[in-house]
Design a protein around this nucleic acid. Sequence first.
DNA 1: AGGTGTGAATTTCTTCACAGCA
DNA 2: TGCTGTGAAGAAATTCACACCT
Lengths: 213, 213
Amino acid sequence: MIPEPSLRRLPTYLHYLRSLAMRGREVVSTSTIAGFLKVDPTQVRKDLSYTGIVGTPRVGYDVPDLITAIEHYLGWDNTSDAFIVGVGHLGKALLGYEHLAEYGVNVVAAFDIDPDQVGKRFRDVEILSADRLPELARRMKVHLGILAVPAAAAQETADAMIRGGILAILNFSPTTLTCPDHVMVRDADFYSNVAVLTQFLKGHFSRKETTTW
Amino acid sequence: MIPEPSLRRLPTYLHYLRSLAMRGREVVSTSTIAGFLKVDPTQVRKDLSYTGIVGTPRVGYDVPDLITAIEHYLGWDNTSDAFIVGVGHLGKALLGYEHLAEYGVNVVAAFDIDPDQVGKRFRDVEILSADRLPELARRMKVHLGILAVPAAAAQETADAMIRGGILAILNFSPTTLTCPDHVMVRDADFYSNVAVLTQFLKGHFSRKETTTW
DNA sequence: AGGTGTGAATTTCTTCACAGCA
DNA sequence: TGCTGTGAAGAAATTCACACCT
């Protein structure tokens, strides 16, 4: 079983490798990857080894092979169908992001309660009425839900997703959802990053004020 | 020094505690918090102890005190001034989020290159021309930058931020930024969460297919 | 020399176990 | 009894050290 931190780093490697491939690079070493992404080279090797790829000593890894291996390991060569719920600015930002398929996500429909939005399309995705969500999730066998509604509506929307058989929720709303154990929720979690950054700034300035060291 | 995982959990506690306070709850135990957020009670106590708060045995923690302690520890009682760069859907979603101040962020201006946007206001925040960013960051002593531009413009925008003396960047663009060591970058990192969720779904379905156990 | 691959050591984070208090 | 607070144990992740390959 892959450690979660390793799993979370794989998409970053993938992104970097794709940019290398685009520039025609055929081969890369873990120290190059590590240097660019500011992590430890051994760590990169360990992480990559979970995908089953092998490199050639003295040379490195074949870039296209490596991309394929990571994509396959993540299952991103076979995208998961997903619903986006909430077509405000955030939902639109997500829908507007063209490369979702490269990250394993295939948005098959969007939902909103706003009658002005329902029936329209945004970036080729149909916007449907939110009350049809459970029924359609079940019928279309969609198991991934992206939650982009205001905080006040987040829990009931999650409930509707779960009623529709959705098993994995990516939660962009600033709320802690209560969900049954068989459902996995990940918070997009703007705030924990803010905490790390503001803490860093705080340290930066208090160090300037206090004289010694 | 607080471990980073603990630091990242503090905002979640804060959020939950605020919801308790709103409902008039005066006292809470770590097991209650832990039960709701699905973490270990001891962990919650350890995390909270970094803020310097003490609870009373047999009773728990005073909710308002706890909120104050976390806010103070994070420095969120004294918000950091921030710039948002990029006023597309994502930038608007962030600007539209009213409660940023509760999370220690005070957005003092937004920037874009689109002449149609520049000069307007969105949610009381002025939208300025992106080329003024370095100068204004320096003059207004802004040290926190929120990057919400398309991938193609991300690196140059980050460079402009850094020229302006910005020290901490929250990067919402799907790009790995190259920045000097004295600058801290955090990626909002949609994809690592997607990786965890799709992996979960993969496991879910392959377990159903394979018969044994 | 300059890479990969991996067991072992180390560090970091989490959980346990229990003392102490109201 | 039901909670906090914390040292110690345990688990997990990272980094080191080195064998091996071209």
